[in-house]
Measured scan of single mutants.
Amino acid sequence: MSIQHFRVALIPFFAAFCLPVFAHPETLVKVKDAEDQLGARVGYIELDLNSGKILESFRPEERFPMMSTFKVLLCGAVLSRVDAGQEQLGRRIHYSQNDLVEYSPVTEKHLTDGMTVRELCSAAITMSDNTAANLLLTTIGGPKELTAFLHNMGDHVTRLDRWEPELNEAIPNDERDTTMPAAMATTLRKLLTGELLTLASRQQLIDWMEADKVAGPLLRSALPAGWFIADKSGAGERGSRGIIAALGPDGKPSRIVVIYTTGSQATMDERNRQIAEIGASLIKHW
């Protein structure tokens, strides 16, 4: 067993022997301040990774656009098919120029040779490549099948209805392509620590998230040296922004954090800054 596999296998073990965790309302004060600064709703939840206990939450059962955070769930569904012998990570998928959609920095470079399922998941999570996500959605049967996968996990809230990039439209009061912070946090925890996926697939999923290259201005910008984070960000229309993450000190994750916002007129930089400040408060009061 590799060191990384050992780390993920012992996530519940280490967490069980940690000192009790206590909620700190100071972080919620910052979440509410972010709402004021952005002029928009902000949803927040913080779960203990081992027990699933909610440590703090704000608007945990209000719907927010998922945006690209759905790509972690998508690759979880792909990995479940791999575990069941219905898919192979090494299978190569070929596609054409007509398949390319807006923001496809990886797939646009491989029109000639195609990409493997493993490479597509890596591109979808680490670079948020939209064509990679659409190609992977095709392998599982489309958005409705991802929703069905989530329902089978016990998540009857999260739903995907459309493809990239239309799913980022974020129309107010439109339930399409949305989740709730509580539902997303619980589902992410199941994917990373539950028995739904094999140990190898859980490790692969967290490795992809740990290698995320496009979430630097968010929670990662607030992390002290030595902290662990595996995350996936999302951005959408109407001032929408979000991030889902597993993080913790001492090089291992111990909490799940989900943050979503929508309806702001603020710039992307300002949305990023507010999420980073929430992260800084979380870490300060850990």
Rank of each mutant, 00 (worst) to 15 (best):
L111N: 06
I54D: 06
F70E: 02
L247T: 06
A280K: 15
E270I: 12
S80I: 10
S96W: 12
A170I: 09
G279A: 11
M1T: 02
A15G: 15
E35R: 03
H110T: 06
M115S: 04
I278T: 03
S128N: 00
S96C: 10
E175Y: 13
V214K: 08
G76T: 07
N50M: 15
V78N: 02
F22H: 15
G141Q: 07
K232I: 00
S254A: 15
I3D: 08
H5W: 05
G239L: 01
P65E: 02
F149K: 07
L192W: 08
T27Q: 06
A133E: 00
W227C: 02
D212K: 04
L223W: 03
K213M: 14
N50L: 12
V117E: 03
T261D: 01
N173W: 15
Q86C: 10
I140R: 02
P253I: 10
G90R: 10
A77V: 11
D155P: 01
V106M: 12
S80A: 11
F14S: 08
N98R: 15
L167P: 04
F228H: 06
A133I: 00
A148M: 15
E169R: 11
L192M: 15
H285S: 10
Q88A: 14
E166H: 11
A182L: 15
A215Q: 05
A183Y: 10
L100F: 09
E145Y: 10
Q37K: 15
T126S: 13
D212T: 06
A245T: 05
E56C: 08
H24L: 10
N272P: 01
Y103V: 05
W286M: 07
F6Q: 09
T178S: 12
E87S: 06
F13C: 10
Y103E: 03
D250A: 13
I93C: 06
E169S: 14
G242L: 00
W163Y: 12
H156C: 13
A200G: 14
D250Y: 12
D83N: 04
V82N: 06
R255M: 05
A182Q: 11
H285R: 11
T261I: 12
V21L: 07
E87A: 07
R238H: 15
V72A: 08
R41T: 09
T198F: 07
T131F: 05
R7K: 10
F17C: 09
C18W: 12
S201K: 07
V82P: 01
F149I: 10
V8H: 14
I244K: 00
P253N: 08
R162W: 02
V31P: 01
L247I: 11
V31Q: 01
I171G: 14
L74T: 06
A124M: 07
Q203T: 14
D83H: 04
S80R: 11
G52L: 05
E61R: 13
E108P: 07
D174H: 04
I206S: 12
L146T: 04
R241V: 04
K53R: 13
T193L: 12
I278M: 09
T262S: 11
L73R: 00
D33N: 14
M67Q: 08
G251C: 09
R91T: 08
A148C: 13
T69S: 06
I278N: 00
